[in-house]
Write a protein that binds this DNA or RNA. Sequence first.
RNA 1: GGCCCAUUGGUCAAGCGGUUAAGACGCAGCCCUCUCAAGGCUGAAUCAUGGGUUCGAUUCCCGUAUGGGUCACCA
Length: 547
Amino acid sequence: MSKELADLIFPNITKTPEDYEKMYPARNLPEGAMVTRFAPSPTGFIHVGSLFGANLDRRLASQTGGICYLRIEDTDGKREVDDGINLIINGLKVFNIEFDEGPTSETEQKGNYGPYIQSERKDIYQCYAKSLIEKGLAYPCFCTAEELNAIRERQEKLKIVPGYYGEFAVCRNLSESQMIERVKKGDPYIIRLKSPGSMSKKIKFKDMIRGQIEFPENVQDIVLIKSDGLPTYHFAHAVDDHLMRTTHVIRGEEWISSIPLHVQLFEVLGFQMPQYIHTPTIMKDDEGSKRKISKRKDPEASASYYKDNGIPKEAVIDYLMNILNSNFENWRKQNPHADLSEFKVDPHKISSSGALFDLVKLNDVSKNTIATFTAEKIFEDGLAWAKEYDKDLADLMEKHKDFTINILNIERTGNKVRKDIAKWSELRENLAYLYDEVYFENEVTYEWQLVTDKTEIKAILDEYMKVYDENDDKDTWFNKMKDVAEKFGFAREVKEYKANPEGFKGHVGDISTVIRVALTGRRNTPDLYEILKNLGKARIEERFAKI
RNA sequence: GGCCCAUUGGUCAAGCGGUUAAGACGCAGCCCUCUCAAGGCUGAAUCAUGGGUUCGAUUCCCGUAUGGGUCACCA
């Protein structure tokens, strides 16, 4: 039909759509396998929403024996950033998300359905655009920005739908010879879709989360190929997801409104549509109202925030899984140590309304996650964090490796595990006072409680050192503590004291508090017996002497 | 404004025509306990709203309100 025009516009495109169909055949995968993709712009920034999506992409592909690939959408030069691809790859690797196909660095790619970088697929898009022109389904548009603005203003005045469509699409109705003439003349142009849609017709679309949605058909003659020869998102989406044989497109719900366009594009190109999963936007509470979590205003919108704050990647993913499928939480409770891959994500169970990102809840998830770690893992991951963000602490941890692990191991075994660490940045608070360097080289503020009289404190400590034996088992140890309490006029048992508060100066807890505070400066610590044992008698004496 | 989407406690949510409307976080109290953390128990707190449909609506339909998205040669 418009072969002459098509050849004139794309003289160098020699391949046909059929060629590409052959180059990228249907994938040979088991029944039900999902092919998903994570398709970011190479801005280098990973939004927590992207992480949410990438995780879903990964999980769905993995659990069905499918493929999850990375595609870089760099058709907008303005948004690009140096090293953007590496930043994305590494940023996701931190959360154990890796791809089966796609770029593996700025310069390398793997997989048979590439190239996976859109700017390298120019010929492919142009081939399909050319074919559309040939079929009379696309055309060159010579309108300038000013003309487009004028059209828009007119439409706004008339209070009708703005855009390039119908009678407003002036270039659409140019004759082929007029088009050829203007192209030859060198007038700048872009390629637009010649939309076959009608405003009065409706289309039905099915989203895996939201179910059926009805829209009026698309009538806009949207841009397919921009003046730089690169495609717009919409066109690239149709071509790429078809050619890369994507079965499930997972993307943010902001794309829902362009569904009519995408349906039309697939139709016009003769492609079968994939399934769609439009994920809810992660929101943020802003003084009582919800708003989209924002890169500019909210540090927690960035995936790197969690690393910076020492929140383990496992916890972040678990939290995200929580908002993905709310039954994950129960599953996790029953399978605290199980690998994520054992949980089957159900796309239909994803909530359709955007969840408020809850840092407090994340904190709780994180506490539970860390509670499943061994002392060794806490040491390693904590140290890795500290090396980057708290060098001083890292040095101490390394210098006293065994001691640190032993301390971290207090109340960590058995079925009632200590849950006092939610992030690595709390490690300092939990460990520092036990290192001699910190204890002796700094001013210690002793938070005495009931017993504050210096002479009495000294007497208690002296007496305690007389009876303390590091070889005692816990019961013996505690009995000795009670003996000391009794000797100084304190009740052996808390209950005893409560029954008769007048009869005693206090109870055994007040005595152990004296020991605890003298030893650490703090009223609250993990199990005192274990701490004493780990410090050893000599260091206990030194610490007491400091007072 | 047009078109879409959403709406169960403060937050995340289960629910899919009949329920004392789960559970989790947070909050409060109690218990346990040498402190803290954990754990156990208890409590306060929810179906946006008006109409239908129905013997019966949180659940289905319509309107309203509120929140969100989108209307680019950005993705």
